[in-house]
Design a protein around this nucleic acid. Structure first.
Length: 803
DNA sequence: AAGTAAATTTTTTTT
DNA sequence: AAATTTACTT
């Protein structure tokens, strides 16, 4: 079979340029995955490269899995001596570290445990407590974020501590927590997600032999979604390709959406600097979307200043117009989406549909609406299998058996199921561990040792309970000994963790619907473990690693009719029909992105990613009211809606909408001046001047208009769901929170400015308050000003009037 | 020690 | 609104 026949000249060039550094700038839908997979097949089939000399790196298991499938399909029928390694950055690092971490001489052994975000947080909480800091002042989640960010920039504790401003108490505290955290992880023989990368990079840097070994092993390296790499991942890539230089990276700077994980867009923009003599190939033909959709995407992304200029084109001129809907509240939006999906399903059930939202929390409304309409759907993200408590419990038993120093795992299961080991007993054990400087497991052994000379620190009852726990874990450890011969090495240990611990009995005796569901989940876990029984090279350790690294959207079913997911997890996917929902200021773009212009640009790239998922038809919608923390609030349309080409949009709203007003004012100086200042410092209100002028929309006007119409009988609504317009209690968004009998007042006795209320600003006019941070006059307000986007203002200086 | 009621917090986005 | 943490019983 001719591998190249299905490629355009540019794609073919990207495939056949096998040697030396190569950057493929691949726009959305330009056949990026195609290029990578064909390239791998080409290396094997045409260049006679041994498959195991090829490494392809992705960010998600989902992407890795899909790539594996497609390469396999391309090479079907050929006998392969080995397989190419297609891995995520993290799983690649685990592989390397499981082999060579001992050469690092930091006390880590190959039996190391991986701590997930949850585990890390628990360690950090304990560190904060033991250092005598107050959790209110030194917020564990913030510390975790700061540590993770530092690690991904490639900083270790020392660098972090020395770069920190010592006069800043908070950061000085962070540095001390960081230090203790590292110490405790080391003692527990545990690595957090970021450590996987940082230790691997350190190992490669320090050990020329290890570097040599992997340069030798991986003759050809490919990196997918290169725009999402962070400094650590860049360093890793450079070390791995130091010698052979056969590095091919594929990505699109317009789709860089992981800045929050320290991804640095400069990695792709400056590839040629990092890898001299690099060749660059641009893929600009889009095979996915209609011209209308590309126009919409381009119209949004062009508001970003910081990007490589390229423009996608397609042979699919024209196409259906974009559909727009303004919902009354989020239930209304849910009903609209469900009704439209029902329509489409009836007409052509083969067309796959995606509902994309900014945050996972938004999924619920759509799930409920779809369920009510009896439409099957598939949801990606949210709670994954391995995040369920019962699964984590059993995995903790397994982790403990493999690595007894894992204190977090021990604390998780020492009293699960309940054995009568309570808070005070655990406190005693921890105290003893601190004193002797050993792990909790060592203490457990010591206090239950019948030959001990000193009297045990525990009462007989507690001591018996701890002894029983010890017996359970030791029973598991026995099963791990090499001498134990069985044909189901992994799943039998898992079964015994479930049964011998008493966990199964606990669930069985509870005998509720929920506990039975949990039992089923554990059966699932055994099934998953059974996969690892088949080959001798995959054992319990690999299974545990899998559980740690498989958290996300792994279970995406590419054949599902309707899929709900975040825009982030939709990256790399395509659907004939796409709904982008919740297009409101504060939601999308997210309220937290007001902090600086760079973050807002990332939100815009996110919008770009969302739009370019669509092949044929794109729906955009927003709601006028939304629940935030259980409280109903007014919402303003997203500034990104304003950046769409309005002339390409059909309005499906009942009655007048934002679009009605926006279109009416189009033609005047519509969003001309966009001199954003991307690098300006933080905290300044006047900073993000990404202003679109001319068109302002005031929701109060719209509501008034609604009522005028309703009174004259013009909105006899018989549309989609027959929802009643302008219900009694949500008539005016400006009215603010419901059920607030005694409005909060400031010291002066004036009504306080609360989220959900409207204010008047001298320059930006009327705006909706989205968030309030801090107390009193110096608190910061995040406000959505229609026509100007979101601003973060300090109440004291902004001179705001209630409106 | 364990269970319940009350108070408090939570929302980016993911390996 | 839901989930998590704390305070208070038994």
């Amino acid at each position: 079979m001719d591998l190249l026949s299905s490629l355009n000249p540019k794609q073919a060039e990207a495939v056949t340029t096998t040697d030396g550094p190569l950057l493929v700038l691949a726009g959305a839908g330009s056949g990026k995955t195609r290029v990578i997979t064909v390239r791998i097949a080409y290396l094997i089939a045409k260049k006679s490269v041994a498959p195991h000399n090829i490494l392809a790196v992705t960010f998600t298991n989902k992407a890795a899995g899909e790539m594996r499938d497609r390469v396999q399909a391309l090479l079907a029928g050929q006998k392969l001596s080995s397989l190419p390694l297609i891995a995520t950055f993290h799983s690649l690092c685990v592989r390397i570290l499981r082999q060579d971490i001992e050469r690092l001489d930091e006390g880590y052994t190959r039996a190391f445990t991986i701590y997930d975000t949850d585990d890390s947080l628990k360690v950090i909480k304990a560190c904060i407590k033991d250092l005598g800091f107050d959790e209110k002042q030194i917020v564990p989640r913030m510390v975790r974020a700061a540590i993770s960010a530092a690690k991904n920039r490639g900083e270790d504790v020392e660098v972090f501590a020395s770069s920190v401003d010592r006069s800043n108490e908070k950061y000085a505290a962070y540095a001390r927590v960081f230090e203790l955290y590292e110490e405790r992880l080391g003692r527990a023989n545990a690595l957090d997600f970021d450590d996987l990368l940082i230790k691997t990079v350190r190992l490669l840097r320090r050990s020329p032999e290890v570097r040599e070994k992997y340069n030798e092993r991986f003759q050809y390296i490919l990196v997918d979604e290169y725009q999402d790499t962070n400094p650590l991942q860049l360093a890793l890539t450079r070390y791995l390709t130091e010698k052979q230089k056969n590095i091919c990276v594929v990505g699109d700077d317009a789709q860089s959406i992981y800045g929050f994980r320290q991804a640095d867009i400069r990695n792709i923009l400056e590839f040629e600097k990092h890898f001299p003599d690099a060749k660059v190939i641009l893929l600009e033909q889009n095979y996915r979307s209609t011209q209308t959709i590309l126009d919409a995407a381009h119209s949004v992304i062009k508001n970003n200043l910081d990007q490589k200029k390229k423009k996608l084109w397609t042979e699919r001129s024209g196409g259906d117009r974009i559909k727009y809907f303004q919902a009354r509240d989020s239930d209304d939006e849910g009903r609209f989406v469900a009704a439209k999906i029902e329509d489409h399903r009836r007409r052509d059930a083969s067309k796959r549909i995606a509902v994309l939202y900014r945050t996972n929390a938004q999924s619920r409304v759509f799930e409920e609406a779809l369920r009510r309409s009896r439409i099957d759907y598939n949801i990606v993200g949210g709670f994954s299998f391995y995040e369920r408590a019962e699964v984590k419990d059993i995995v903790a038993y397994l982790k403990l058996a493999v690595n007894p120093a894992d204190n977090i795992a021990l604390l998780r299961v020492i009293n699960t199921p309940a054995r009568g080991i309570g808070r005070s007993t655990i406190e005693l054990l921890e105290q003893s561990a601190r004193q002797s400087g050993t792990s909790l497991w060592e203490v457990v052994k010591a206090v239950t040792d019948s030959a001990a000379r000193e009297p045990s620190i525990l009462q007989p009852r507690a001591r018996a309970a701890v002894a029983s726990f010890r017996k359970t874990v030791e029973g598991l450890q026995k099963k791990l000994e090499p001498s134990t011969t069985t044909d189901r090495p992994v799943s039998e240990v898992v079964i015994s963790a479930i049964e011998d611990s008493g966990y199964a009995d606990m669930l069985r005796s509870e005998n509720s619907e929920e506990s039975l569901g949990r039992l089923e989940n554990l059966e699932e876990l055994v099934n998953a473990a059974a996969e690892y029984d088949r080959t001798p090279e995959t054992g319990l350790r690999e299974f545990i690693d899998h559980a740690a690294l498989t958290s996300d959207s792994d279970k995406f079913d590419s054949n599902a009719g309707v899929t709900l997911m975040t825009v982030h997890s939709a990256k790399g996917l395509e659907f004939p029909i796409v709904f982008i929902v919740g297009l409101e200021d504060g939601v999308f773009p997210h309220a937290r992105s007001v902090n600086d212009a760079r973050e807002l640009e990332e939100e815009r790239r996110l919008a770009y990613v969302a739009i370019t998922r669509a092949e044929n038809l794109l729906y955009v919608s927003h709601s006028m009211r939304r629940r935030v923390y259980g409280e109903e609030m007014a919402a303003e349309p997203s500034q990104f809606l304003n950046e769409l080409p309005l002339e390409l949009i059909d309005d499906l709203s009942r009655g007048p909408s934002w679009l009605t007003y926006a279109s009416a004012t189009t033609g005047s100086a519509r969003r001309k001046s966009s001199e954003g200042t991307p690098d300006s410092s933080e905290g300044e209100p006047a900073r993000s001047r990404n202003v679109y002028t001319g068109k302002t929309y005031n929701s109060a006007d719209a509501i008034e208009e609604f009522f005028r119409r309703r009174e004259s009988g013009a909105t006899n609504d018989t549309s989609v769901n027959g929802a009643r317009l302008g219900g009694d209690d949500d008539a005016t968004p400006a009215q603010g929170r419901r059920g607030n009998y005694a409005p909060t007042t400031s010291l002066k006795g004036v009504e306080a400015i609360e989220p959900g209320s409207y204010v008047q600003h001298s320059k930006y006019g009327r705006g909706l308050v989205l968030r309030r941070e801090g107390k009193g006059e110096s608190s910061k307000l995040t406000i959505s000003f229609p026509g100007y986007g979101m601003k973060k203002l300090v109440e004291k200086y902004a001179n705001l009037q209630k409106a």
